[in-house]
Design a protein around this nucleic acid. Structure first.
Lengths: 335, 335
DNA sequence: GCCGTTGTTGCAAGCGCGTGCAAATGCTGC
DNA sequence: GCAGCATTTGCACGCGCTTGCAACAACGGC
């Protein structure tokens, strides 16, 4: 670690023959500098390889430009895609993303938020897990903005972005009935996150109003392997379902693979399948899965727009709801 | 933006009835503080919700704890997985990851590195694209460590982590020959990155030494859709190949789907397929793809270990080579 | 020729922190 | 009781930056 490797504004000032303030102002949009001074400063900065120290700037401005992304299982397709959209939007807005991995353990998200505070992040976006209420309060008290995505929390202060999971789940029942299905099933993981449970309850409730029973099965984490296990459970029943709504596409892919290769079930002829998320693989021709597309770009844009919005929590209700878009593919009859 | 939302060491000091230095020392490992003082400081800090300001600390220490991850197409399975492994390892080492999206455009990586300099990142890890030599020099001159993953660059200074792509590609030829294949093909994208080209050249060279011709086809970006297009090109030839090595698993998945569903080709009976990366989908039973596993965890561990290593560029040659591990699955006959 | 106005510049303070230095404190051995 | 030592503590400075303030220059209108 060299002693003083980075070139400072002081050195630029000396080389340009101006004061240190002039250098600062040159790199501060909207500050008052004459064209001639600016030219000399830029020239010297270029020659010396000067870059404004955002750490020091953040110290003065009380605004670091850092936004924390807090997320678990970040390599799953849906999450990875959301992270991509978020970082892109943040960059467009002149912010920069910090990425923090969380796991299932209790204090994990709290720890992440503490890290966000240490780096004086302007905001944190939580894609996974629920932080303790005391921590979110700490963040807000420290002037840090908070965005909760699909967390379905009711506390005031953070921006809450949610999908209308229940309503979407209801549409699936209609689709299944239209396809002539009668023995419905719902395949879920045991994660028990608000969105997953909302899909389950929405589906069961809608089926009930149409007088159809639903077999609900839950297993393990929300991944491909769980989808296979769920298929093994549901397809070995004496009353084999003829339609299954999987809580996510990943579950659906596992389910379809087991159904086809292990149980020789024809999709959609003997079994209709619907997923959720519209991950890239859902469109692959091995699956061609009917599913709900999450408006990932819109979610990211909305979140970032709210973050950079100077007017504080001006807008009364900081809650946004999106309708997922049903994408018809061949895993359901009669699209 | 509230004026002074974060609580400072000063306030903690006042509440604890000690000097500000004492607070600072309490949170500096190895500093000299009496147990009693420490207790009072910790108590006050707890009560006030104090967190050390890492921005200011970075200013003093010339060490921010920030490591930049520079990556394009970050939502593809292989990249997403590498990002996950990296952030996890960084967190374990007490560092934190900044994530920067790049695109195909020329100055994109340079811009990202400039951003890394602005935030005084201790290091940058480049997973995509090649920065201009002048920029990497700028980083090194500023005392910033640099890691290039699969970039196959020869400049001194950065840590270079590479796979032995050519050697691996050679093993594929052997596998194909052993499976009784004679008409080999290589399916590549047009990205032209060093690793992709090394796989292509290694495959062609190995085939040549065994007296077998190879049909090489290149198309588009390195994704699923290109795999489909490549299948359309290669499977409509009068001399249809009976074995194809796809430069990545994503290409292979597209290739297999088109081969099976569009051309009714049986895999592995009529066509053997090998991919590269061992993404999660390669193990899905719709593909069950024979492929090379990149030692993602080891790559991440190696990179982070080198970054946090105090001894500077002590170790003579900063270049690491890994052998990818061939994972046998059913897309090749006679594993 | 003078004053008010506008635009530019340097000074200096301060953001929150780490740390060298010297003073202060506590302890041991005689 | 006191010299000698180790440990702890506070002071004050500086890290690189922004910004309010006052000084200053330029300039047009009367």
């Amino acid at each position: 670690m060299p002693q003083k490797p980075f070139v400072s504004a002081q050195e630029v000032a000396e080389r340009a023959g101006v004061s240190r303030s002039a250098v600062s102002r040159t790199f501060t949009p909207g500050a008052s500098v004459s064209p001639e001074t600016r030219r000399r400063v830029v020239e010297a900065a270029e020659a010396l390889g000067y870059h404004v120290n955002h750490l020091a700037r953040g110290l003065m401005r009380n605004e670091s430009g850092i936004v924390c992304l807090i997320v678990s299982e970040m390599s799953t397709p849906y999450r990875a895609n959301l992270i991509r959209a978020m970082t892109q939007q943040l960059q467009n807005a002149g912010k920069i993303a910090m990425l923090i991995n969380t796991d299932r353990s209790d204090g994990s998200v709290d720890l992440a938020l503490r890290q966000a505070i240490r780096y004086r992040a302007d905001a944190s976006i939580i894609l996974s897990g629920m932080p303790d209420r005391s921590i979110t309060q700490l963040c807000l008290k420290n002037g840090q903005r908070l965005v909760l995505i699909n967390r379905d929390d009711d506390q005031q202060g953070p921006l809450r972005i949610n999908l209308d999971d229940a309503e979407a789940a209801g549409r699936v029942v209609t689709a299944f009935v239209r396809a002539g299905c009668r023995r419905l099933a719902f395949a879920n993981s045991q994660a028990g996150t608000p969105s997953l449970m909302a899909r389950e309850h929405g589906f069961v409730a809608a089926a009930k109003t149409m007088g159809l029973p639903v077999r609900v099965e839950r297993h393990g984490p929300t991944d491909y392997e769980s989808g296979r296990v769920l298929a093994q459970r549901l397809l070995t029943l004496s009353e084999r379902p003829d339609a299954v709504f999987c809580a996510t596409d990943l579950l659906a892919c596992g389910f379809m693979d087991a159904a086809r290769h292990q149980f020789r079930v024809a999709i959609p002829d003997q079994l209709c399948v619907v997923g959720f998320d519209d991950i890239e693989q859902a469109a692959w021709s091995s699956y061609d899965l009917t599913t709900f597309a999450q408006p990932v770009e819109m979610i990211a844009r909305e979140a970032v727009a709210w973050l950079v919005n100077e007017s504080g929590q001006a807008a009364g209700d900081d809650s946004v709801r999106f309708q997922p878009n049903l994408v018809w593919r061949s895993s359901v009859r009669g699209g």
